[in-house]
């Protein structure tokens, strides 16, 4: 039973039952990113408002299992109000925490592989992860890693797109 308790920690169940930052933002100005796990139909929608290189607001919509939804909720809490660079740092750390099996699960293109390589180099400091460390137990259940990383991939994609747009309008 220990594995299950590791997976479904109280924090995770709490965020599943009472998701934080749930809702939508007006687009534009907000950016809307949708991520999908075709395996189980999990769906996470991230709404992002970036002002002055800061994540001014973030909202989460969508539906899915306890892992995908609690991870999104925890993520929204962790990055709200943060600088983009700090948010990116957190994405890297989180993906490193989850990377133990993920690279094996994904049929990655060489481009993505390089990113994974970078991820491996990040040293995860559990202290710095705060409540996010509760999701650590997921790595013991390889099929569920995709659930946990779904919202993080959406966030990363959103930040990329926002920065690209900012650069191209400069």
């Amino acid at each position: 039973m220990s594995g299950l308790e590791d997976l479904y920690r109280e924090i995770i169940l709490d965020h599943y039952r009472n998701p934080r930052n749930r809702g939508e933002l007006d687009t534009p100005p907000a950016k809307r990113i949708e991520a999908f796990n075709p395996l189980c139909g999990d769906e996470v929608v991230v709404y992002l408002n970036v002002e002055d290189d800061k994540i001014a607001d973030i909202k989460i919509a969508g539906q899915g299992c306890s892992i995908s939804q609690s991870s999104a909720s925890l993520m929204s809490q962790a990055v709200k109000g943060k600088d983009i660079s700090a948010a990116r740092e957190l994405i890297r750390s989180f993906k490193a925490m989850m990377s133990i099996h993920e690279s094996k699960l994904e049929s990655t293109s060489s481009e993505e592989l390089d990113e994974d390589q970078q991820v491996e180099d990040v040293v995860v400091n559990p202290e710095a992860m705060g409540e996010l460390a509760a999701l650590q137990g997921v790595v013991k259940f390889p099929v569920r890693i995709k659930c946990a990383t779904l919202s993080w991939n959406a966030l990363a994609q959103g930040l990329d797109e926002i920065e690209e747009e900012a650069n191209s309008s400069k």
């Binding site: 299950l4 997976l7 189980c40 899915g64 299992c65 306890s66 892992i67 259940f141 569920r144 659930c147």
Partner: peptide, 19 residues
């Protein structure tokens, strides 16, 4: 969620399909 259900059931050796 069916995934969560199947995960807990697996802990008891019960093989069902979620998806």
């Amino acid at each position: 969620h069916p995934h969560d259900l199947a995960q807990v059931l697996d802990e008891y050796g019960v093989c069902i399909r979620a998806g």
